[in-house]
Design a protein around this nucleic acid. Sequence first.
DNA 1: CTTGCACTATGAAACGATTCACGTGCTAGT
DNA 2: ACTAGCACGTGAATCGTTTCATAGTGCAAG
Lengths: 341, 341
Amino acid sequence: MATANIKEVARHAGVSVGTVSNVLNRPDSVAPITRERVMTAIQQLGFVRNEAARHLRAGRSRTVGLVVLDVANPYFTDVARGVEELADTHDTMVVLCNSGENPERELRHLAQLEEQRVLGILITPVATDNPHLDRLVERGIPVVLVDRGATAQRCSVAVDDVLGGRLAGAHLAELGHRRLAFVGGPFSIKQVEDRYAGMQAAMAEVADAHITAIERPSLSVAEGSRAGEQIAAMPDADRPTAVFCANDLLAIGLLQEMTRQGIKVPDDIAIVGYDDIGFAAAAAVPLSSVRQPREQLGRAAIELLLDEVENQGVGDGHTHRQVVFEPELIVRESSQASRQA
Amino acid sequence: MATANIKEVARHAGVSVGTVSNVLNRPDSVAPITRERVMTAIQQLGFVRNEAARHLRAGRSRTVGLVVLDVANPYFTDVARGVEELADTHDTMVVLCNSGENPERELRHLAQLEEQRVLGILITPVATDNPHLDRLVERGIPVVLVDRGATAQRCSVAVDDVLGGRLAGAHLAELGHRRLAFVGGPFSIKQVEDRYAGMQAAMAEVADAHITAIERPSLSVAEGSRAGEQIAAMPDADRPTAVFCANDLLAIGLLQEMTRQGIKVPDDIAIVGYDDIGFAAAAAVPLSSVRQPREQLGRAAIELLLDEVENQGVGDGHTHRQVVFEPELIVRESSQASRQA
DNA sequence: CTTGCACTATGAAACGATTCACGTGCTAGT
DNA sequence: ACTAGCACGTGAATCGTTTCATAGTGCAAG
């Protein structure tokens, strides 16, 4: 009933277990006839390697852990896709763990991954400053940070949010907008702050441009609507002609509210979002948005990790790198130049 | 450098390895003083159990595999959340695998999971009829099907799509609609067919109701728009006053196109979608939709699996069950009774 | 005929935790 | 005082694979 093991295969093929192992791992070192015989036995018995035994013997597993804040967020699933894709070509498994922004769950996952002796961990930590991660590194488990808290002490990948904000700002400036708003928050989130800073930097180069910051407690569709109410309530003369939202959910909520209030997008007000989630293109008015190279981010992260694993202590060893990607502005209808212009 | 093992802990604490193991697994069988000593040693050495060794000795791992068609689909991430949640309380890990609707990737994942000697596998298979799954079952690895191809040969969980269609149909009939359309396809997908059948069944009870089926090659936003063009092109007298879409993406595309063409939702045309994805509520006109109990589906699936694992060959053993859940209609603006009615 | 070499195959020793059949030393009961 | 029973601990065997030093074989060169 139980799956056959290497010993039974050896007996069946009339060879030693060492030979079977060689067939599996170094087929060229085995004479073709023997190899055939072993292969046949494997087929007949339906032999399947026991990963636990290999792993025990090898001392480390062939898997990496990927700990994300929210599996339901397309951002992370895209990153995960990038990670998996590249891991696949390196004979490495990816265990996807969801912390759900819960530090306890995150810690439990880290403990589990450590028990599994994973090759390394890719993580977007809940808290920027996580002592458990330091502990892992001390124990020799490489950690690569994804889009959070880059430091010289370890590898990380991230996207330049300041640049993203700058792109959005420059785009709106170029369209002639001078009365602008930024919707986002809380500003304690680094990403939000950076995007705003980028927008400000872009507008600093434009004469008589003015930005109103509308801070909201979270980055959801509902908060976007609320920001929309605020904007709609402004007297026409003061109302911004363009809004940059810290993410697409806000932008979608805002867009909805504008439509509801009879304020035309993009004619009366232009909107630019951030993240370019799938629904940005599918919104009532297709949404301009700043796209992050998500899959590429994932690929880069696992690349850094595998490099660290392979070169740990070898030769010059491994140098921690902080890779920063450039976002890209996708222009759609929501920020098209006014038709009457 | 390498993590300490149980032997070192034993030496450090001045006990045998057996005792350390007992402290770990049956603390009550160890005298308090000894236990303290061992615990201290564990702390000092930063000992972390080696999962591979436990697993090898135990003969089976403590993880289950969850193979889904698309991690980026909120449907599956919700199912996954349900699975994880319950697995957590059973000291079981979940390895989430993404087949991406690719049979090869699916097969690779299954092979990997088998090498890992997982407790069992939860899967939404790419093809309804999958010989590899039978092979797994033969080898004693329980398989539970999620929302696909239920048979008496194994456990499965699913949602009653016929009922879902019926709910949508009955709702529209009750609002007084008699000229309806169904948008979906391809009809070769069982889910689509069932939803349509349910709608038809509901309308069969209504005098002079008529359904136009609009078949589209896939269930995407773009196809929804295209269906919208078709509907907009109909003469006013023939145009349906209500549309039921086989999923929310279609419904969103359709909604957009209606807006673009100046056809008011829900006044001129009512729309009901299926799946109740997050964006259904956030659409320009909040979308009525048939919601599937996704997390519950996941919970039920893992429950069936664990039951099968625990009762395999024990006593009366395990009986395969096919659990079917009932969907729920969420009514929002897109199918509100016309305001002028 | 020996030597050396290239090729193959062998089998025992790891890897680290768990388990279980046995000690060992006490206490309590008679 | 003897022993049954109990509470704790022990340590060797075990899980399935990989690795590596070693051995056997046959062939070509010397």
